[in-house]
């Protein structure tokens, strides 16, 4: 638990059977950012005192039935829900985002990509809102380059839900061109309103389909993803400053 701004932030990286970006998230938090991290097995019932929780990408429980459908019932998800309800920052990346949707921690659902293909490539996303723990180090409108790797990233919610998300500024990332322009051919999966990431109504739970943890060092083709992890470290340290004052 962070009590002073100088303390190291502790990440919990949830590991489901079939997670495959857990090591990337761990590496980004520790080797790249210099913070602490711990793997938490999906059958565990304790987040090990973490300050921030990451649900990584992969194919939890084989993605059988629907992506994220069974991971929602993993014992650790009770702890993740409690942590989120207390205001703790939770980041769902790709399959982690799908798990958060199935668990009802974020609204909406994922459909098969519009073109039916599994898309594995770098895309551009525009930061729509910076007042979340995972985007506060970004500039509003900043365009980030990150990889995607998914077959079911076609975000869907009924029009009234989309209207509510827009009104509450819960759309955090949209697929755009490199220049930040909304264009249908810049939307890799057909997501409604080009939505690449959203937050919950208390803004501490964020999910996105692109992979920031795979874009934290320039040899990987982009270091833009680091901003997402730096944001939560800054956010927690600012919180610790306030709490300690």
């Amino acid at each position: 638990m962070l009590t002073r701004a100088g303390d190291t932030v502790k990440f919990a990286v949830i590991v489901f059977p079939g997670s495959n970006c857990d090591e990337d998230a761990y590496h980004a938090a520790t080797a790249v950012l210099g913070q602490k991290a711990e793997y938490v097995w999906h059958k565990d019932t304790d987040l090990k005192g973490a300050d921030v929780v990451v649900l990584p990408g992969g194919f939890a429980h084989g993605d059988y039935l629907r992506t994220g459908a069974m991971a929602r019932f993993s014992p650790i998800m009770r702890e993740v829900r409690t942590f989120a309800e207390r205001g703790g920052p939770v980041l769902g990346i790709c399959n982690g985002f799908q798990v958060l949707l199935e668990a009802g921690l974020l609204p909406g659902a994922m459909l098969r990509n519009r073109g039916l293909k599994f898309r594995c490539e770098h895309v551009h996303i525009r930061v729509e809102q910076t007042d979340t723990p995972f985007t506060l180090a970004c500039r509003g409108g900043q365009v980030l380059r990150m990889p995607i790797a998914h077959g079911e990233g076609n975000y869907f919610a009924e029009p009234d839900v989309i209207a509510r998300l827009e009104a509450n500024r819960q759309v955090i990332f949209r697929y755009t061109t490199a220049e930040g322009e909304l264009r249908d051919d810049a939307n890799p999966n057909g997501s409604v309103s080009a939505i690449a990431g959203i937050c919950n109504d208390t803004r501490n739970v964020v999910g996105l389909m692109p992979h920031p943890e795979r874009a934290c060092e320039s040899p990987l083709g982009s270091a833009d993803g680091l901003l997402i992890f730096e944001s939560v470290v800054q956010s927690l340290k600012a919180g610790a400053l306030v709490a300690g004052a």
Binding site: L65, R66, A69, M70, F73, L101, E102, P107, G108, A109, L111, F156, A157, E158
Partner: peptide, 8 residues
Amino acid sequence: KLLANPVI
């Protein structure tokens, strides 16, 4: 509970 996702 499991077989269908009521959102879609």
